[in-house]
């Protein structure tokens, strides 16, 4: 597994993905300028932009690295040489996942440090009305990272059942969108509002089922708390981490089970 992990990381770095991230990270330089367009919350806007930029970069990585990682090996016929080694497919999957995960974590760390510098800078330019909560910022970045690791596992799951990259890429993007909205849809459906009552019961049931199936990504969003320095409930964080561990493990286990039975033809 470590051997696969290492070559996965090597592959990502050799593909100059990190250089691409550095170029995107140049956008951070513009953040204080854009932030100063705000009337009353320059620092807040800078934090919003920074965290969203991190989130966006991690999303791209999760979708494109996670979605093509397994597919590429099959497409380029690497699977024959790699799976002919005495490695179990499960350890291959886990190695691949860990490689992607490690890269995502490194990126998050790198961008997180840049964000801290940018916010310090913006804060110096326009002192904020409320103190910046650095702990919340770190929590926001950490949970964003967890969220995208989960998304990588979803992309892996899609890769294990598909022979092309369409399903992994577009499936993962859909899960990302729906997963961010599922909580609100669920809340709305259970708000007892008049508009909901006219919906057929089947629709409500199906939506509720989907709510439990699709990963609840909104739970990982602590950006507002970081931007406005709101308090974060420890219990909520603990439950979210637990949820993450279990959901990601299930996704990887399913991926491994399906991949074990898959034919390399």
């Amino acid at each position: 597994m470590t051997s696969i992990l290492l070559i996965t990381l090597k592959g990502i770095f050799r593909d100059r993905v990190f250089q691409g991230i550095m170029v995107m990270a140049l956008l951070f330089l513009f953040i204080p300028t854009i932030g100063s367009l705000s009337m009353r919350q320059v620092t807040e806007l800078s934090i919003t932009l920074s965290l969203s930029l991190i989130s966006f970069i991690l999303l791209l990585l999760a979708v494109f690295l996670g979605g093509t990682s397994l597919w590429k090996d099959i497409e380029k016929r690497y699977t024959f040489s790699v799976l002919g080694l005495p490695l179990s497919r499960t350890s291959y999957i886990l190695g691949r996942f860990m490689g992607n995960a490690l890269f995502l974590c490194l990126t998050a760390l790198f961008l997180g440090v840049i964000t801290l510098l940018v916010i310090l800078w913006a804060k110096g330019l326009y002192p904020p009305s409320r103190p910046v909560r650095w702990d919340n910022m770190m929590i926001a970045v950490l949970f964003d990272t967890l969220k995208y690791l989960l998304l990588v596992s979803v992309a892996f799951f899609f890769s294990s059942v598909s022979t092309s990259f369409f399903l992994p890429i577009f499936g993962t993007i859909s899960v990302y969108l729906v997963g961010n909205a599922s909580q609100e849809v669920y809340d709305y459906l259970h708000s007892g509002s008049q508009a909901v009552k006219v919906l057929p019961g089947m629709v409500v049931k199906a939506a509720s089922l989907l709510y439990y199936l699709i990963p609840n990504l909104a739970a990982f969003d602590y950006k507002l708390q970081a931007v406005y320095g709101l308090d974060i409930a420890g219990r909520g964080m603990a439950l979210t981490v637990l949820y993450w561990v279990i959901y990601t493990t299930i996704m990887l286990a399913l991926t491994a089970v399906i991949y074990e039975r898959r034919e390399m033809k």
Binding site: L49, S52, S55, L177, N180, L217, A218, V227
Partner: peptide, 11 residues
């Protein structure tokens, strides 16, 4: 807007 901006609602 909420749906398409996913976790970028602040932005």
């Amino acid at each position: 807007l909420k749906f398409v901006s996913a976790d970028h609602k602040g932005v």
